[in-house]
């Protein structure tokens, strides 16, 4: 034991490069630069109410991005997160409004529906060997259709469930500390992120999530039941999409069945900006959070500067390209 030779630890810079921490630092630095830039450009930007608006706007995309991160680290992709979110919102609407069940059951139903759909995608991918892109593309369309069918293409309102809007828009923190009216939606985002971080960093599921993305065949040949673990990751991601469905339904006080398409791309964009590799095996929840924040800060700041919606979209696209380019440069240097 004591004979392990004490080789010199690699230099700090090298360690940061190797761990990918540098990409997160970079994303974090960009976020700071954006914040500073916008507050210099407009005095309205750094207002407490605006900061809270930014955080609230991040909550839904942030939760979806956390779900997408888990799947992307396995080397897969989930295109169905957006329409799955809507599907779960519709399920909550059916259980609460159509059936008149109590709120906890609606919440449970939404999360369970999400997990079940994720498990189904996982089964297509792991057992039927359909490429994740195709499997979740099909899932995305099926869920979009099912949301419309179940809801009869009409929004389902939660007027009969008092307190449903509190899920996202109420403020537990504000009730305790009146000076800090952080909406519950933001709190939930952070809880989801902490939970996902814990799973990735400290549990067997998390270890296998990275291992699958790093070298699935080597994991299989280690005697690990890779199919089951992969399905578990997709199911977990689906359950998290269910939480996002509750958040968006609560904020709109309704399940909007036509909503959802396009959210998956925003989520993937946040993941990528946060430094998670689409090739799998590498990524962090913290990075994804920063990525999601960068996107909403950008949208919010550009709007305050009266940049039109159209140009906001152009800028967002450019940011994605830039972020991935920087990531590629890093890879070229280290590998």
């Amino acid at each position: 034991m004591s004979t392990v030779e004490a080789a010199p630890r690699p230099r700090l810079a090298a360690r940061l490069f190797a761990s990918g921490a540098h990409q997160r630092l970079l994303a974090f630095a960009s976020l700071i630069i954006l914040l500073v830039g916008f507050s210099l450009a407009s005095p309205n930007f750094m207002q407490m109410s605006n900061i809270i608006a930014i955080l609230q706007a991040t909550s839904v995309n942030g939760v979806l991005a956390v779900a997408a991160t888990l799947v992307i680290i396995t080397g897969g992709i989930d295109l169905s997160v957006g329409t799955l979110m809507t599907f779960c919102a519709v399920i909550a609407g059916v259980v609460l409004t159509y059936w008149g069940m109590p709120m906890p059951l609606g919440i449970l139903a939404a999360v369970a529906a999400g997990a079940l759909c994720g498990l189904t995608s996982g089964t297509f991918i792991a057992k039927m060997k359909i490429p994740p892109f195709i499997a979740t593309l099909g899932m995305m369309l099926m869920l979009k259709g099912l949301s419309l069918v179940i809801s009869g293409t009409r929004p389902i309102y939660f007027n009969d469930t008092p307190g449903f809007t509190e899920i996202a828009s109420g403020s537990v923190i504000g009730a305790v500390i009146p000076a800090l009216p952080v909406p519950n939606g933001v709190l939930i985002l952070f809880l989801v992120a902490i939970g996902a971080s814990y799973i990735l960093g400290r549990t067997v599921l998390g270890r296998y999530t990275f291992a699958l993305g790093s070298n699935e065949e080597a994991v299989r040949l280690s005697g690990v039941n890779v199919d089951a673990w992969k399905m578990a990751v997709y199911a977990l991601a689906g359950g998290i999409c269910g939480i996002a469905g509750l958040l968006i339904a609560s904020r709109l006080n309704s399940a909007q069945p036509a909503l959802g398409l396009g959210y998956e791309l925003e989520a993937i964009a946040a993941v990528v900006i946060g430094g998670t590799s689409l090739a799998g095996g590498r990524g962090t929840i913290l990075g994804t959070l920063i990525g999601a924040l960068i996107m909403s800060v950008l949208t919010n700041g550009l709007r305050i500067l009266s940049v039109t919606q159209e140009w906001q979209t152009v800028v967002t696209g450019a940011i994605i390209i830039l972020a991935v380019y920087i990531d590629m440069m890093r890879r070229r240097r280290t590998v």
Binding site: F210, A211, S214, A218, V219, L221, S222, V224
Partner: peptide, 15 residues
Amino acid sequence: FGLCLGMDVRANIAM
């Protein structure tokens, strides 16, 4: 077929 190259020695031994 044997290693997750991007993961550390510890995780590979425990795999």
